[in-house]
Design a protein around this nucleic acid. Structure first.
Lengths: 263, 263
DNA sequence: CGCCACGGGATTGGATACAGTTTTGTGCGC
DNA sequence: GCGCACAAAACTGTATCCAATCCCGTGGCG
C-alpha cells in the first residue's frame, strides 16, 4: 500500500513501539512535521513563500496527508506557515509591520532576559555560552553559512533557557523562527547573519556581571540585525522559487522529477 | 446544520462574528474549534482537566473528528490542552512553575506595554478603555461572575492592542488564556477575579500620561492576582472532576444523556 | 494578437473506515 | 465481599476515498 519511497524514508523504523511514551522513534507524527519544518526554517533551508504540498511532505515522512495537515495546523498557529483555503500552505513571508513587531518584541524580552542571566548565571552557564561561541567561530571558520545561521539563532535560545522562564523561552523560539523568515524575506544582497563579535561581547558582559551593559549590547545587537534589512522593498520572492537552492535534506524542491520510480 | 444547543450556548453573545477572512459559510473549521475552546476557557466555562472527546465535540460543531483533531493540534501548540497518546485531550493544568512563569512573563511584557500606551494613547484609546471599564462595572453590578471574568481578561487584551505590536498582542492573548487556567487550577476558595478598582487606576495613570506609574500599577495588579493563588497545594482536580459544575454552556459534560434526540 | 471560455490534471477539504489502545464492565474464584 | 482475569465498549490514530476547488494550458473568437 505504501510506496517504496515511504518505506525507504523510515529506514531504521521497523521497531515495534512497545513503550508508547518513551521516544517512539519509529513513526513520524504531526509533531515531527512541525519540528522538522521549524528546524529547516531556522537553518535557512526553507524560505518564505515556499509552497508546502501535503502529498509530497507526507511521502517524505512516510505518513498520510492527515498527519501532515495536523502539522500544518500547528505551524500556522505559530505563524510560520500561511494557509489559504483550497490553495494550500506556504512558508510565511513576514511583511514590514510584522518584521518590525518581531524585532521590537525580541528587544523587549531579550534585553530583560540577558540582564537576568548576567545577574544569575553560574559557571556552568557561562561555560555553556562559551562553548557555543566556539561552535559559532568554528562554523565561521569553515565558512559554513547554513550552520552559522543556525548557531547564531541558537545563541539566543540558549540565553532564554538559562534565564529559566520556560514559557518565555518557548515564545522566543517562535520569535526567532519568524526572525529567520523576516531576514530571508528582506535581507539586502549579502547574507548578513549576526555581526561577528556581538555575541561574544554579550557573553563578556554576562561574565563580568554587568546586566545593564549586557542589555544594552543585546538591544544594539538586535537593532543591527534589523538595520541590515531592507524593509522598504516588498519582500523578495513574492512567488515561491520553490526552495530552489535547498540541499537534499528536505524534499520540497524539484517539481517534475521525483514521482518517477514509484511503480 | 447546527444543533439548537449551539445557538443556546451563545445566548448572551449574539453578535455575528464577521471576522475579516472568514467565509460566513456556516461550516465550522479547525479554527472555529480552536476559537471556541479559547473563548470557553477565557470565560471560565472550561476548567483544567476537562476531557475533550473528539467525537462529542465534532458532533457539537457538526464536523468530523478530522477537523476537531486539527483544532486540538492548534490548542496543544498554544499550550491550552494537553494531548497524551491514545488517551485523548484535556484542558491543560498549569503547574506551579508554569503559573509563576506566565505571571512573570506577563509582568515583563505588560508593564512595558502599559507604559507605551500611557505615552501614546489618544482620546479614542482612552475612551475605549473607559467604555470597557463601564462594562466591567456593569457586570460587577449584575454579579455576573462569568461575564466579569471574561471582561477583566479582555481589559489586558485591549491594552495590548492599543500598544500596537500585533505579535506581542497575540502572545499576550495566549498568556492570558493560560492565566485563566492557572487561576482555575490554583484559586483559593473564593473566586478572585481581578481586584475591583485596579484596572480603573491603571486607566487613570494612562490618562494622566504617567507611564512609570501605569507600569507600577500594572505590576502590582498582576502580583496581586498571583498572590491570591495557592500555588503550594497541588493543582486541584488532579484527575478531572470532568467539569462537574460547569454550566450548560458547553457540551463537555453529562456523559450519558446528550445524544438522545438527534434522530 | 489578445482575451475569454473551457477542460483536464493537480491539489486541497473533509468524512469515513478500520486498526490499535485504553477504559469500563462483569463474572469467577477465593 | 474482594480482587483479578477477561471481554466489551469507548475512544484515539491514521489511511484512504470522494467531492470541491484551483491552476494552467488550449483553442475559439473578436
Amino acid at each position: 500500500m505504501t510506496l517504496s519511497k515511504a518505506t525507504a524514508a523510515r529506514s531504521a523504523g521497523n521497531r515495534r513501539k512497545k513503550r508508547p511514551n518513551v521516544r517512539s522513534r519509529g513513526r513520524a507524527t504531526a509533531e515531527t512535521v512541525f519540528a522538522r519544518v521549524v528546524e529547516a526554517i531556522r537553518a535557512h533551508r526553507l524560505i518564505p513563500g515556499t509552497r508546502l504540498v501535503e502529498e509530497r511532505i507526507g511521502a517524505y515522512f512516510g505518513v498520510s496527508r492527515t498527519i501532515v495537515r495536523q502539522g500544518f495546523a500547528k505551524l500556522a498557529q505559530a505563524g510560520l506557515v500561511e494557509l489559504s483555503r483550497n490553495r494550500g500552505a506556504r512558508i510565511a513571508t513576514p511583511d514590514e509591520k510584522r518584521t518590525r513587531d518581531v524585532f521590537d518584541a525580541r528587544i523587549l524580552i531579550e534585553t530583560e532576559l540577558v540582564g537576568r542571566v548576567a545577574d544569575s548565571a553560574g559557571k556552568v552557564d557561562i561555560a555553556r555560552l562559551r562553548a557555543h561561541l566556539r561552535r559559532e567561530d568554528a562554523a565561521r571558520g569553515r565558512a559554513d553559512r547554513l550552520d552559522l545561521v543556525r548557531l547564531t539563532g541558537e545563541f539566543h535560545t540558549i540565553l532564554a533557557e538559562i534565564a529559566g522562564n520556560a514559557m518565555l523561552a518557548a515564545t522566543l523560539v517562535e520569535y526567532e523562527t519568524v526572525t529567520c523568515l523576516a531576514i530571508l524575506a528582506h535581507a539586502r544582497g549579502g547574507d548578513s547573519a549576526c555581526p561577528p563579535d556581538e555575541h561574544a561581547a554579550i557573553v563578556d558582559a554576562i561574565e563580568r556581571r554587568e546586566p545593564r551593559r549586557a542589555a544594552t549590547l543585546m538591544r544594539r545587537h538586535l537593532e543591527h540585525v534589523l538595520a541590515d534589512l531592507d524593509l522598504a522593498r516588498a519582500a523578495r520572492a513574492p512567488e515561491p522559487l520553490e526552495a530552489a537552492l535547498a540541499p537534499a535534506a528536505f524534499p520540497v524542491h524539484r517539481r517534475r522529477q521525483t514521482a518517477r520510480s514509484s511503480r
